[in-house]
Amino acid sequence: MIEIEHLTKRYGNTTVVDDVSLSIAKGTITVVVGTSGSGKSTLLRMINRLVEPSSGRVLIDGRDTMSIPEDALRHRIGYAIQGHGLFPHRTVAENIATVPRLLGWDQARIDSRVDELLRLFQLAPDEFARKYPQQLSGGQQQRVGVARALAAEPELLLMDEPFGALDPIIRGKAQEDLLAIQRRFGTTVILVTHDMEEAFHLGDKVAVMDRARLLQYGTPAEILVHPAEAYVERLVGTADRPFRLLSLSTVADALEPGPASGQPVDKGTSLRDALARMMWAGRTEMPVVDGAGAALGKVSVAGILAHGRQPA
């Protein structure tokens, strides 16, 4: 549980973060979204005290972060940034081992943790452990950056535009990896981005910031359906709204009984993707199967469209 209470940061007369309060549940992903200069990065950096707050406080599991020495605090909080910030003079394995080494883990434990993380991010340890960051592709560097942030098994992971430098295909893959790993470790993640799509895709909760203020904090659906201010509504994009809403639900949510013909669709597919496939194939219905391929029922265009309609 992370509680941000009336957090404010001023530089001279400029306020970059203005009285922001948030409560973040353990094991969830919270995405802070906003344009550049909205104060979202500063908010993130106040959590691990890379920026000292002017006023307000951050509690982690009830403990004020100001009561913990800053280096010790940061050892407990994973930190991954855009452009990864890997140490170019250290190998992949040495990079990942940074915080465990600072914490004085024994070598055997470090080695097995590095090995585990490399495998988790689909980087074969034999091939990648001894490479230097410059020898990796952008996507691989980014994975090593996240692996390094997770090395000391932090309960909280802060990510500042971690996928900003990646091309769309690798970016999508990196997002799926993050979701899978977050589910596996149950890490609490706070991620900053300017990309609405990313925010809705990753966030259990989304915090929208503009000009130093927190405009709205809620689930993606709440923000789509009940935008708190005109600015949030604009940011959400009125034209994209129904499609975004569809991408938040899966085929399982719109399941109807009965058979249908054609290529089956997995129950975990988002309604948006299912609708796209039906439009492309020129069908109004598709059979739905579960992970094992067993038939569950069908999904229809009308059923999907109902999910994209403005709630009463």
């Binding site: 691990n48 890379l50 800053e70 280096d71 010790a72 605090l73 940061r74 050892h75 930190y79 940034i81 855009q82 452009g83 990864h84 910030g85 890997l86 140490f87 170019p88 940074t98 915080v99 600072l102 950056g145 390094r148 942030a149 802060l158």
Partner: peptide, 18 residues
């Protein structure tokens, strides 16, 4: 020295000396 590298080092809790 790239700013992101120094930022990452700070963010991971390396002391000034380290």
């Amino acid at each position: 020295v790239p700013a992101t590298v120094v930022d990452a080092a700070r963010g991971m809790g390396m002391s000034k000396r380290q």
